[in-house]
């Protein structure tokens, strides 16, 4: 049977495409079937990814999650820094300057404040829990923004895989919390008009959570929230590994 293993190892990246596709098919079904679409399938898929990584670590004793299993080693290419950064940059394709102007001043301030608040409180938690190096603090602060900004920041700054994992998990907690909490608190925070939806999108920023949360609140508001939220990850990837890292480093030296 070793020739089957050889075939899978040789075509690692393609095997990873197939495995990820099957996994996401399953998680989207689970999301629809058991949460009525309230929790986005992509959030469940990322959670399952972390579970797989845990299992991979348990089975092999290695540090690269599921990629330590030879047949699934293609995951390390598909989920590696190059593809991650390349696909994230590609998401900027959806953003147009016209739309940026539409969001206007309120959207821009909401975006900046949203990233700053999430980062400061996230970094604060990291410090309170005993992290003392600027790279780890900045990475966890980035994770408190979104599950993308954390690993991008950690990757750029050279954070350890443990800290990057914590940052992904923090972003995931945020995404799920936003999804569940938005419809529940909507009436208390005045989330019933397009302008507040744009402010909400900029302040919260985690795109899948914002879209799912608004859809459960009032589907008409989705495009307004998504409009500002789409810029959140890009802006966070720009600010966290640069100005905010320098600030943290300046405080901690």
């Amino acid at each position: 049977m070793s020739w089957i293993q050889d075939l899978l190892v040789k075509n690692g990246l393609v095997v990873a495409f197939l495995a990820t596709g099957v996994l996401m098919l399953l998680t989207h079904w689970l999301g629809k079937r058991f949460t009525g679409g309230r929790i986005p399938g992509s959030a469940i898929a990322i959670f399952f990814g972390l579970v797989l990584a845990y299992l991979g670590g348990r089975i092999t004793g290695g540090k690269k999650g599921i990629a330590d299993i030879p047949e699934l080693s293609g995951f390390s290419l598909m989920g590696g820094a190059m593809f991650r950064d390349f696909t994230i940059v590609a998401t900027a394709m959806g953003a147009s300057l016209v739309k940026i102007r539409q969001a206007g001043l309120a959207g821009a301030i909401a975006l900046l404040l949203g990233i700053l608040v999430a980062f400061i409180f996230g970094a604060g938690v990291a410090i309170a829990m005993g992290y003392r190096d600027a790279v780890s603090i900045t990475t966890i602060g980035g994770g408190a923004c979104t599950f993308i900004i954390g690993p991008v920041t950690g990757g750029a700054l050279g954070a350890s895989s443990e800290v990057i994992t914590i940052s992904i998990a923090a972003g995931l907690v945020k995404s799920i919390l936003v999804t569940i909490a938005t419809p529940m608190v909507a009436q208390y925070i005045g989330l019933n008009n397009s302008k507040t939806a744009m402010i909400y999108g900029g302040l919260i920023g985690t795109t899948s959570g914002v879209a799912a949360g608004l859809a459960a609140t009032d589907p008409k508001l989705v495009p307004y929230g998504a409009l500002t939220a789409t810029f959140y990850t890009g802006l966070g990837c720009l600010l966290c590994p640069s100005i905010l890292y320098l600030l943290v480093g300046w405080i901690y030296s």
Binding site: A16, F17, T20, G21, L23, M24, S42, A45, I46, F47, F48, G49, L50, V51, L52, A53, Y54, G56, G57, R58, K63, K64, G65, I66, A67, F75, S76, M78, G79, G80, F83, R84, T87, I88, A90, T91, F147, I148, P151, S160, S161, E162, V163, I164, T165, I166, I168, A169, S208
Partner: peptide
């Protein structure tokens, strides 16, 4: 990008984290 992020989660050192 979401599939790539899913793959990225699957290669983290979760046991250590």
């Amino acid at each position: 990008y979401i599939p790539v992020i899913v793959a990225m989660s699957a290669i983290q050192n979760v046991k250590g984290a």
